[in-house]
């Protein structure tokens, strides 16, 4: 039904929206100024930053050379990529079959295991780190890339499994029945029929796992604190602490920009999918 408002009514309706517009526009301007300034500062000299005249003495691309090469941020970036990509793939490798199994296969312990995973989701990391540190030290795996990838993977298995479970349950059983009649085994059915059907959910949860692993800080600080193992986040913290001593403010802003650019670029590309992941898929962002 289309309503037509008398013009004064429509005006009133629009006037009421003004405070709302004002708030979201101010918020957006704030974010634009914040990020714009940071990018300009990352290309300025420390002197220009303090005199409030960004870029006055020219564009300092060498700030990036200093941050990435001399201060080893490139290596931190490489570590973050390695930990993040390995773990998000391994999470799917473990969680997809488990979710399918819990959604479809009937056995006595099924509901107990599902319940266990739900409890696992709410166990805070702080309950886990001390025994894991002990275990890794016994295995000589403290300060090793394997231990951080292992932890990143397993910490996300309960949630990812639980998330995918509901999507596998939503698929009609007629697909599997048809496959079974055609003589397909359970592995073929899972890989070639069921997995493609829940692919959108797998993609969504993988994107969110990517963001949370990329930004993870606490475990990285504890299990990958050695300088050659550091992630971008841990590296950024260490770097800013030492640049504060040497007074290289431009270098700090370059480091901050290097740390946030990767996720902001990925977000710019995948914003639609990420936002609908939260609003429709109910992902914990």
């Amino acid at each position: 039904m289309k309503k037509t408002y008398p013009s004064s009514d429509r005006l009133k309706k629009n006037v009421k929206k003004v405070p709302g517009y004002l708030l979201v526009i101010l918020w957006t301007v704030f974010i634009a100024v914040l990020f714009g300034w940071l990018i300009l500062a990352s290309l300025s000299s420390t002197k220009d930053i303090f005199s409030g005249t960004l870029l006055a003495s020219g564009v300092k691309w060498e700030n990036y050379y200093r941050a990435l090469i001399q201060n080893k941020m490139l290596r931190n970036l490489g570590n973050s990529c390695l930990y993040t990509f390995s773990s998000i793939i391994l999470i799917d490798v473990v969680s997809c079959p488990a979710a399918y199994c819990l959604a479809r296969m009937k056995f006595k312990l099924n509901p107990v295991i599902e319940r266990l995973f739900v409890v696992g989701i709410s166990i805070p990391g702080i309950m886990i780190i001390m025994p894991m540190f002990y275990m890794f030290s016994k295995l000589d795996l403290t300060n090793s890339r394997l231990s951080i990838i292992f932890l990143y993977t397993v910490m996300s298995v309960p949630y990812t499994t639980y998330y995918l479970l509901t999507f596998f349950r939503g698929v009609s059983t007629s697909y599997e029945e048809a496959a079974y009649i055609d003589g397909a085994g359970p592995y073929y059915t899972f890989l070639k029929i069921m997995l493609p059907l829940v692919k959108p959910a797998v993609v969504t949860v993988t994107i969110f796992n990517f963001i949370s692993k990329w930004n993870e800080y606490f475990l990285a600080l504890i299990f990958a604190s050695k300088s050659e193992l550091r992630t971008l986040g841990v590296g950024l913290h260490q770097m800013v602490q030492s640049l504060l001593v040497s007074g290289d403010w431009a270098g700090m802003f370059t480091a901050v920009v290097v740390a946030f650019i990767p996720t902001v670029v990925i977000y710019a590309i995948l914003a639609r999918q990420i936002i609908s992941g939260v609003t429709e898929g109910g992902v914990k962002g």
């Binding site: 914040l34 800080y217 971008l232």
Partner: peptide, 22 residues
Amino acid sequence: RAVIYMPNVISGVAVGYMWLLY
């Protein structure tokens, strides 16, 4: 919506230093 959600995808360390240093 996209703009206001954006800081969520940035690591806490980077967000912290943006505010602290700038």
